[in-house]
């Protein structure tokens, strides 16, 4: 299963980005292969609709789960229609690596 994790930087040691739609980077982690892809978020500075555009981006990577600190109100129904699970994790001090470790323990 692929999981999108919002990240403040380009490495696994970066802190979790607390915003979904306007996060700096998406880390796409594959729990089966352990593969990692890091994508800069082109919607970071979008004037409007950063949330839906970011859902569109991670959905194109076929993720089934998103981990972030906060999700905007517009995207809940979009994620439901795509059957993507939203995981709210309000831990600004945690690294992306620690989120991956948690996913592996599940």
């Amino acid at each position: 299963m692929k999981v999108a994790i919002t990240s403040t930087g380009q490495s696994l040691e970066s802190k979790l980005d607390q915003r979904f739609g306007r996060c700096a980077f998406f880390v796409i982690y594959d729990t089966e292969t352990g593969g990692v892809e890091i994508l800069p978020n082109p919607n970071k500075d979008a004037e409007e609709g950063a949330g839906p555009a970011s859902v569109q981006l991670v959905a194109s990577k076929e993720v089934e789960k998103i981990v972030s600190g906060e999700f905007g109100y517009k995207i809940k129904s979009l994620l439901d229609s795509l059957r993507i699970q939203m995981v709210v994790y309000k831990e600004p001090e945690k690294t992306v690596k620690s989120v991956i470790d948690m996913l592996n323990k599940q």
């Binding site: 004037e47 409007e48 555009a53 859902v55 959905a59």
Partner: peptide, 8 residues
């Protein structure tokens, strides 16, 4: 230009 069409 406004991300108003959600397309997957």
């Amino acid at each position: 230009n406004y991300n108003a069409i959600f397309y997957v």
